[in-house]
Amino acid sequence: MKYTEEHEWLRSEGDVVVVGITEHATTQLGDIVFVELPEVGAEVSKDDEVVVIESVKAASDISAPLDGEIVAVNDALADNPSLANEDATGEGWFFKIKPSDASQMDDYMDEDAYKAMID
């Protein structure tokens, strides 16, 4: 698992990368009540805003961590946004991206570095 400074987690599954936000992030955001996911098939560039999250407190954006194509989105999350609070790194995943340059993964933190950042 890799982590971004914006509290996304990235998990490689074959040639796609699953993306969500960390438990630390969902705790900070509070109860998540709305998630707007990108279109499947969308070509996105790193840092494009691809997801909108609304918690009881505020709206925030999630950027694409990699260049690539969105190949799947978690429709269950759109129907039940609290999945992100309940199971941030499992059932609460956001989207799967097929990266056009897998080496972009190397830019991100490993778990120890991420833990050090949030401490």
């Binding site: 509070g30 109860d31 009540v33 009881v56 407190k57 609290s82």
Partner: peptide, 9 residues
Amino acid sequence: VQYGLGVMK
């Protein structure tokens, strides 16, 4: 602003 339960609960 909130306690341990969080705003929703």
